[in-house]
């Protein structure tokens, strides 16, 4: 049975994601209001991807959602190739944890210095939530297309 992931802490100046580590003391600059997390909708090849910053409340919400995710123990993998792939979450230049997280196809992949850790995004709930944070920042027709892709039941 999957177990909850260990502590994920978004640290100084952004998403310092520490996966698989024990509790980590928060520095004064890692208060929820200071988190500046950027979400990138990873879809394009030639053009730059659409991206936006999360509000402090959304960043706090994201941390909580990540903390609840179990480790991915199956063979799930992120999407690659041409077309919509998923989301990339970064936290600015001053990351003391993972450099980025990729949320795609039911998998959350944390990357740092060539090392990765996989979490399971059951039902692609986190992916759908990230898309929702882009409402109004992503062109409406593209938003609707991706919403259908990530939740075909809708």
């Amino acid at each position: 049975m999957p177990r909850p992931s260990n502590i994920l802490v978004f640290g100084a100046f952004g998403a310092a994601v520490v996966l698989g580590a024990s509790a980590c003391p928060q520095s004064p600059s890692s208060r929820p209001g200071d988190r500046e997390m950027r979400v990138e909708l990873d879809a394009y090849s030639g053009q730059p991807n659409p991206s936006w910053d999360l509000t402090p409340q959304q960043a706090e919400d994201l941390v909580q959602r990540l903390q609840a995710l179990p480790e991915e123990r199956g063979g799930g993998s992120v999407r690659d190739g041409l077309g919509y792939r998923g989301f990339i979450v970064t936290g600015g230049a001053d990351l003391s944890g993972f450099d980025e997280m990729v949320v795609s196809n039911g998998v959350v992949l944390g990357r740092r210095a060539g090392k990765t850790q996989k979490l399971a995004d059951s039902g692609r709930e986190l992916e759908k939530w990230l898309l929702h944070t882009g409402k109004g920042r992503v062109a409406n027709d593209l938003y609707d297309d991706i919403a259908k892709d990530s939740d075909p039941q809708d």
Partner: peptide
């Protein structure tokens, strides 16, 4: 809804390769 451009390059192995974004 999805508009973009993309390029491929021919390699000496006679296959084509590319870098999606």
């Amino acid at each position: 809804s999805f508009k973009d451009f993309h390029w491929y390059r021919l390699n000496s192995e006679n296959f084509w390769s590319h870098k999606p974004g």
